[in-house]
Design a protein around this nucleic acid. Sequence first.
DNA 1: CGACTTTTTGAAATGATTCAAATGATGTGG
DNA 2: CCACATCATTTGAATCATTTCAAAAAGTCG
Lengths: 238, 238
Amino acid sequence: MSKHICNCEHCQHKLCAKNVPIFSLLDPEEIEKVVSLIVRRKYSKGEIIVLEGSSLGSLVIINKGRVKAFRHTYEGKEQILYIFSEGDFFGEKNLIINQKATYTVEALEDTNICMISKNDFQILLKEYPAISYKVMEELCNRLIRLENAVESMSIKNVEARISSVLLEFANKYGKPHSKGILVELPLSREGIANYIGLTRETVSRKMSLLQDEGIIEMVGNKKVIIVDKEALEDSINH
Amino acid sequence: MSKHICNCEHCQHKLCAKNVPIFSLLDPEEIEKVVSLIVRRKYSKGEIIVLEGSSLGSLVIINKGRVKAFRHTYEGKEQILYIFSEGDFFGEKNLIINQKATYTVEALEDTNICMISKNDFQILLKEYPAISYKVMEELCNRLIRLENAVESMSIKNVEARISSVLLEFANKYGKPHSKGILVELPLSREGIANYIGLTRETVSRKMSLLQDEGIIEMVGNKKVIIVDKEALEDSINH
DNA sequence: CGACTTTTTGAAATGATTCAAATGATGTGG
DNA sequence: CCACATCATTTGAATCATTTCAAAAAGTCG
């Protein structure tokens, strides 16, 4: 990981763009150009950044914070599709295929974003093919994530779905801890339920079960320690 | 739709590549170059084209026929992720992020494919940015399809899921008919079940129900007439 | 036409959901 | 820093829909 020059309060130093995966192949001069096109904005926890069905007309890149992307089903439930954090982007569907937002995006915590207008981004894509390549990479990764989600949701074994999600969070947000891996959950029980298509009660019951088995340990409502990662992995494949 | 010069038995005339969406922005000269890189192959119904976990090392474009892309869950069930037909491609994950196949691909009928090696395709991407753009477009569409699938699978109302799939098939494969839209189903009842995460018995029961309501009419096992498309659409949103 | 495969239908079992209540966590103001 | 009010989580019991297993009916193909 290369050191970057950034000690400003809101990460406004130009070289920050270097840390955004889709711009990572650009050289400093090109980064400068990208940075000149960026508009910054801040959102507080709970604020809506994009509403399903609207057309934002910009690519949004997360600079700091976490957001959830979800849809409201007609039944009133929300289905969470993605959790985006630093370096992730969204709004690409509007830029690439002129499609209105397929999900609502809401800040899970205080969040800073960078926006590049449709026009500017299309120019960038043409000028720097390396960006296209990086975007394709990320779209592929997102496809894999959704393919896994579809498989996971077709699985009858609900415990395996919970294990999957806990491992996903552990890989993304986990930190070493004396008892295992400490994970700050980005979502409440209800959020987790909406992420994997269950009810909050079921999530609660199954997580308690995993705790009884000594596989995880809950620390308050917002943290979990993965005590036995292997057991968690095993419980997915049966 | 521009007329193309093609009267050969297996569509081997060069200009056929013009009909592949990702090459559609290229001019005749460029198409020629692409065509020179293509290796053709045929598969019979039921044959495996790619096995999950293998690395094919080529982009595969379907020239004629239909295939299903699926995974085996540990429970032994198969989860179908995509049905690809003429003009669709797969194998892009290996080329773009060096990822082994995330699904098995099997021919649903006799199928002709075109293959372009990883190396050649990467050269094409660099040389013709228009291809990158088209690939991104298609990846976006695939994301939308999977996002819909995830939402659909989290919905409790099973009848709505069946209606969704029937409409999807109607849009892709439907033909006008005196009673409505005649659809040649690409999948058996069991296949449909594996596509939307249900059992074949449930699919059977719910389709019979739709028939009793006069919304569809089954013609043997492999065809369905959508009699009342609006009612089908309504049943999704409630 | 006849053998085989696929689909349909029936009845019982299973497991998540629902609704309700209790317990536990969190954050605020005194 | 504690007490209280609020919100989230857990737990319990009944319900409901899909699954499962089994058998009959219908469709397909040589």
